[in-house]
Amino acid sequence: MSDQLNWFKSSYSDSEGGACVEVAFAARIHIRDSKTSHGPEIHLPAPAWSAFIAALQPEA
């Protein structure tokens, strides 16, 4: 299934090729390490992804 997803690199990923996270949006959110594209993935429902991103945002 991963090969059919439209993966993109996170805007927060290291441009040096170090810390790179790729994300694909489908019925669930798919997350993987770009250095191991055939390795394990995390699959989350959209509300869980939104809560995760919100928790990372600095408080205003």
Rank of each mutant, 00 (worst) to 15 (best):
F25S: 14
A26D: 15
L44W: 02
P47S: 00
A26W: 10
P47Y: 00
D14G: 15
I29T: 01
S37Q: 08
T36N: 15
D33N: 14
V23F: 08
P45K: 02
Y12F: 14
G18M: 08
H30P: 03
E16Y: 03
Y12E: 13
P47A: 00
H43A: 03
G17V: 09
G39N: 12
Y12I: 04
F25E: 11
I31H: 01
E22I: 03
V21P: 03
S11H: 05
D33L: 06
P47R: 00
R28W: 06
H38P: 02
A19Q: 11
E16I: 05
E41G: 04
P45Y: 01
E22D: 15
I29F: 01
G18R: 07
P45H: 02
A19S: 14
L44I: 02
P40V: 10
K35S: 13
H38L: 12
G39T: 11
S37F: 05
L44N: 01
D33S: 07
T36R: 14
E22Q: 15
I29D: 00
E16V: 05
E22L: 06
F25L: 15
G17N: 13
T36M: 11
D33K: 05
C20M: 11
S34C: 09
C20P: 07
K35C: 05
T36K: 12
A24H: 08
I42A: 03
H43N: 06
P47C: 00
H30I: 02
P47M: 00
P47V: 00
A24V: 04
I42T: 03
K35R: 15
V21C: 09
A27Q: 12
E41N: 10
P40T: 12
E16F: 04
V23H: 06
S37E: 12
V21T: 13
H30M: 06
D33Q: 07
D14K: 04
H30R: 07
K35E: 13
L44M: 07
R28A: 14
V21Q: 07
A26L: 03
A46S: 08
E41Q: 15
F25D: 12
S15E: 12
F25W: 06
R32A: 13
C20A: 10
C20L: 06
S15C: 08
